[in-house]
């Protein structure tokens, strides 16, 4: 079994070591992201509200994908407790935030996942679950997840880096493609991704290698055609996401000698138009232990939000967070390359 960087005691499991490579390492010197943003007159970059409340329910996962920015895996034990979930619910009950985005790890592995979903739903919020697909097949107790998602009208977002087996398995592990296809068919069977059901199933593409995603529209067309032809699978939208040069993907880039070239690619593709729509501007990201971050990437780099008085759910202060200054580092180039990248795919209009 492949292990997480943390369990392998790889120095890259340490966020300050990662930041050191990204920010200060003289052999890997690249143009500063902050200066680029200053150059287009957008520094400091400020949030424009909090519309999406993204909760990382823990680092435990049934997969160990090579590119994972969470360094998730079966050997990670950090999961959100019910007490911390209750703090999330307190915040949500007292705020106009309408969208809750549940991620991980595999959020479904959290023992209180279903309870949490029911409580959020009772508050009338829209829920997105980032489901890795294979979890549905991982154990009998997860086989009814499609029905559970349907019951709560959850929007499902799932990764499938290719419509071919070899590329998917290279990135996500042996057998992942086959199980993902079965899981997609199970989701389709209850109505997900099928026209007029109102049950949304979006797919995520991210490159299986040291390169940037091609055109989202072209990919979506191809996925639609191939998945229907070969497996009779349909879905709503495809989001093309850029891999972030942090955690396990950073490890991959460094060990294969691709790091500098990849950074140059990201920098060369810097798109000023993508800056104004980066997802941190309307999102708040909550860690498994209740701390607050600008996004899931800053969370993994342990960069807590700037307002010192509102860095944890217990002190959540919407007025301080909604126009906070975003913490920008070199990895942010991953959000602004080409058509841009976010949890909802390309961002440049």
């Amino acid at each position: 079994m492949i292990k997480s960087l943390k369990v392998l005691q790889n120095p890259l499991a340490n966020s300050s070591y990662q930041l050191d490579i990204l920010e200060h390492n003289p052999t890997h010197k690249h143009a500063s992201f902050k200066e680029k943003v200053a150059g287009i007159g957008m520094l400091p970059l400020l949030a424009v509200g909090v519309e999406i409340f993204q909760v990382n329910m823990g680092k435990m996962c049934n997969q160990v994908c090579k590119h994972c920015h969470v360094d998730a895996g079966p050997d990670r034990k950090e999961v959100m407790t019910r007490d911390t979930m209750q703090l999330c619910l307190n915040v949500l009950a007292n705020s106009p935030i309408k969208i809750v985005d549940l991620t991980g790890g595999a959020p479904e592995l959290n023992p209180d996942f279903r309870w949490f979903v029911e409580q959020i739903k009772a508050l009338g919020k829209h829920i997105i679950v980032r489901c890795n697909l294979t979890i549905i097949l991982a154990n009998k107790r997860f086989h009814d997840l499609p029905e559970f998602f349907k019951l709560h009208r959850i929007e499902v977002v799932s990764s499938l880096p290719s419509f071919t087996q070899d590329r998917t398995d290279k990135q996500r592990g042996d057998g992942v493609f086959e199980d993902s296809i079965k899981a997609l068919q199970m989701l389709n069977a209850v109505g997900y991704g099928i026209a007029d059901t109102g049950l949304t199933l979006n797919l995520v593409y991210n490159p299986a290698g040291a390169f940037l995603p091609p055109s989202q529209d072209a990919l979506e067309k191809e996925y639609r055609f191939e998945l229907m032809k070969k497996y009779n699978i349909s879905f709503n939208k495809l989001f093309a996401i850029t891999n972030m040069p942090i955690s396990r993907y950073l490890d991959y880039l460094l060990t294969t000698g691709n790091y500098d070239k990849y950074m140059e690619k990201l920098i060369g593709a810097f798109n000023p138009a993508a800056v104004k729509n980066v997802m941190c501007r309307n999102t708040i990201s909550v860690g498994w232990d209740g701390y607050l971050y600008d996004c899931d990437f800053n969370q993994m780099l342990d960069l807590k939000v700037t307002p010192a008085t509102s860095q944890h759910l217990a002190d959540f202060d919407l007025s301080a967070l909604q126009n906070r200054e975003i913490i920008l580092k070199q990895h942010c180039y991953g959000c602004t390359a080409g058509a841009g990248s976010s949890c909802g795919g390309a961002v440049a209009d």
């Binding site: 290719s162 590329r167 490159p207 290698g209 390169f211 091609p214 072209a218 990919l219 191809e222």
Partner: peptide
Amino acid sequence: SSDAYEKGFS
């Protein structure tokens, strides 16, 4: 070689 691989050719 990069472009064709990136665009999804095997």
